[in-house]
Amino acid sequence: MSLSPYVPIIGLFAIAAAFALFSVASARIAGPRRYNKAKLDAYECGIEPSPEPVGGGRIPIKFYLTAMLFIVFDIEIIFLFPWAVSFDLLGAFGFVEMVLFIAAVFVAYAYVWRRGGLDWD
């Protein structure tokens, strides 16, 4: 009787999960508890904590921009992977197609670069 090759992954996942959950749960039990109002406040180096983190939930635009860029390039990678794996089969045709593809992504990249999308300030 043999298991699917994916089963061990799940197995390791399960063990790790069990361990991690046990840890976080046991910390509640093992540790002491001494109530202190200040202790439960958000930590801001001793000053009065601001009521809402980062200006009322407004997150700097740069992070969104980075997220979007990531998605674009991650998708590019998604296409690169299978192409790379079967590179030898696809031959010159695949190469030309991929050059076009990368060129197209590069167009976007150049645009973002020139417009300062990659600058973090």
């Binding site: 407004r58 969104y64 979007m68 998605i71 674009v72 998708i75 998604i78 296409f79």
Partner: peptide
Amino acid sequence: AFFVMVVAAAEVVVGLAIIMSIFR
């Protein structure tokens, strides 16, 4: 499914851009 993933990603980018500009 691959194509759909790409499309979905593009959609995410566009959607985030719009939502973000509204949010701002």
